[in-house]
Design a protein around this nucleic acid. Sequence first.
DNA 1: AAGGAATATTCTTGTCAAGGAATATTTGTA
DNA 2: TACAAATATTCCTTGACAAGAATATTCCTT
Lengths: 114, 114
Amino acid sequence: MSGKNPGLDTTTLSALAEPNRMDIVELLRDGPLTVGEIADRLGLRQPQASKHLKVLSDNGILEVKAEANRRIYKLRPEPFHALDSWVKSFRLAIEDRFDNLEDYLLDLQNKEKS
Amino acid sequence: MSGKNPGLDTTTLSALAEPNRMDIVELLRDGPLTVGEIADRLGLRQPQASKHLKVLSDNGILEVKAEANRRIYKLRPEPFHALDSWVKSFRLAIEDRFDNLEDYLLDLQNKEKS
DNA sequence: AAGGAATATTCTTGTCAAGGAATATTTGTA
DNA sequence: TACAAATATTCCTTGACAAGAATATTCCTT
């Protein structure tokens, strides 16, 4: 393994980056829903809803529970925890006191002298 | 305006969802860098580095400071704060006690009787 | 068993975004 | 002034992905 892609899993972000899928996640915030309800409330056609739900499930953002005819989708906590950890890990990086821009400029000027 | 897209700005997520751009963000965690250094350390060609940096800047994730010949890119705090708020707002939604799946199933069964 | 409801899947098509290559632009330097 | 370094931009090609339409699958009800 070469030390590539150290950050957060980008597939999670890709999944959330599609507006309809973001809407689905926002909708499921209030609790689990069936495919039909999701499609209805968001004005999506059923097949597109199913497809987006599949993407979200494949990425671990949602989980399904089969209940007879229906499939009930709900949020999974893990990806949100991961996102939270990732964002939190930037606390130091984005605080102004860690803005070593000045130092970096000095470094650049020093290297000019070579 | 129709109440569409209530969640987080998906363009921020799209910008971060590209692996090279995620790498750039991870790299800039340690402080500001020039285009050349970013390209070098990540094994990117200069034009692609510039293009990715432009996307990140256009989305407010990075900011530039022109220093003579060089352009120095660094992280901007705002999008991380936004992401943090968004993720935090899911705390209630993903706690198990808010898993009203049982209630929902009962609801479904009740509606069957219509 | 037959029909209908809920959901998933397949196929096609159009759009968009990323990489490659070449070139333009700006600035510093001999 | 000419040249080199650092960065940005343009054009082209290709691949991924989302919507639409049609169809398949599963399960319930009569």
